[in-house]
Amino acid sequence: MEKIIEVKHLSKKFGTHEVLKDIDFTVNKGEVVCVIGSSGSGKSTLLRCVNLLEKLTGGTILYQGDDIMKDTHNVEEYRKHLGMVFQQFNLFNNHDVLSNCMVGQIKVLKRTKEEAEQTALEYLNLVGMAQYIHAKPSQLSGGQKQRVAIARALSMNPDVMLFDEPTSALDPEMVGEVLKVMKDLANLGLTMLVVTHEMGFAKEVANRVVFMDQGVIVEEGTPEEIFNHPKEERTKAFLKRTLD
């Protein structure tokens, strides 16, 4: 299997508080990896370290075998390959739906307006938001915003999509529409790294599940292994707490 992202001995401190401790893990091409764990265990921080929104305190990340922590490596260049979906959507407030999906393509990827619009519409169509291209973010519901945010990330044609609890800020009735879009993407063979509390989604869609607790990876394996035959006590305790 072709490795896309390799995290090696990653550690992260906020001041003296060590949030991530010697993390090692890999994302392979075409794989859906779900990260689960209780709140405060460092899942978001891990994801943010992967696309360098947080500075690493130690360790390194290889992208397709290339060390991105080398001085010669350009952060913006690297981030082009990663799509990020935030818990709080973070749509650009000054752009309407269509131009949220176009501005990055034009400014970062230097695509023409026509190309950008074509691509944006394709993905807005895919997430079922093509009807709303002239709406402003403030005029959309949470689920709609998150679908636009996904389309925005996809419009950059990234190699890997990162999701940080994309449904946690949504009203329950909107969770389904977003999860459905994510399942579609998984079926399309997209490489995805997903932090989630949706155990059903992880079970159904993930190739691999990573369980984190207190800044370390406690256990990882197939959904079958993690959900049905967890080895570690902490994993069992977490699953018992969340599934009940």
Binding site: N51, L53, E76, E77, R79, K80, L82, G83, M84, F86, Q88, F89, N90, L91, F92, N93, G104, K107, V108, L109, A149, R152, A153, M156
Partner: peptide, 12 residues
């Protein structure tokens, strides 16, 4: 979040 989203799609 506006800054982070912009940085995340590769803007300087």
């Amino acid at each position: 979040g506006q800054f982070e989203a912009a940085h995340a799609i590769g803007m300087n």
